[in-house]
Design a protein around this nucleic acid. Structure first.
Lengths: 136, 136
DNA sequence: ATCGGTGCAAACTCTTTGCAGATTG
DNA sequence: CAATCTGCAAAGAGTTTGCACCGAT
């Protein structure tokens, strides 16, 4: 019973997220999309993001001290574990879930886990190298 | 060179956080503090929280889909790992850092880690039991 | 007495909502 | 053609800022 319509605005948002190699904020999506659809309203983006979240097509993250980012859900992104570089904002996926064992232990003790997020931030190898070169 | 003054507002905020067994939001702190200082302004709380963060006396967390909470820093809270019950908001500390090994591995590969947060949410044993009893 | 802190009001940012008209199926 | 979606404008939350006065040191 999906009465959802496939508007060019929604398609555009999806394709922007699909082509991005890192999670994007609403403002980043907006800046990108106005290039093609100059009259688009931010509220349209908010509404479409909400519906994409409900449809489980994208994930929502809180990074960098409370900025909200969205990322397309793909097979390789299914697990929500990644590391973000504070500098270049590039995202590095974690191959496995490092707290899987911990979760099992907690569930054995009666805690019902609904979700977990792990956020590691810092400076990636390349950015660290670059900064170092500047100073030497 | 701390020109910081020790006002009753700041003392009050600290003592409220010290006596709380869970992280508190600005609004929770405000509701508590107006009982004693009815004329206090929210901006005063924001400003004091900022200065307490700078002084490293409290920690800031993003929980429950982007609500911001603050918690007093104590020896037993030094490591930022805990689990929060969505229902009663009680906080359960994790005894150890479950991603310590992962971090070491990442740092060996050149990533400079600045900080990490792990957020696990769900329903604690007691709340789960309570809900179950209602339905049976 | 000095200078940082406070309360108040206004401003700002981010997000949501109401509505008339446009667009999709 | 009907129902959903859009753009616009206005309204709401949460937070920050400017300023005159207050109060710690």
């Amino acid at each position: 019973m999906s009465n959802e319509r496939n508007t060019k605005q929604k398609q555009m948002i999806l394709s922007i997220l699909r082509e991005s190699d890192r999670p994007m904020s609403i403002n980043e999506i907006y800046s990108k999309i106005v290039e093609c659809l100059p009259k688009i309203a931010k509220s349209t983006i908010y509404r479409n993001i909400d519906s994409l979240l409900l449809q489980n097509l994208i994930d929502k993250y809180h990074l960098n001290d409370n900025e909200i980012f969205y990322r397309i859900k793909t097979n390789c992104h299914e697990h929500k574990h990644f590391v973000i570089c504070d500098d270049c904002k590039k995202v590095f996926d974690l191959p496995t879930c490092p707290i899987h064992d911990l979760e099992s232990a907690m569930e054995e003790e009666g805690f019902i886990i609904k979700e977990h997020q792990i956020q590691i931030s810092g400076i990636c190898k390349d950015c660290a190298k670059f900064k170092h070169n500047i100073n030497t």
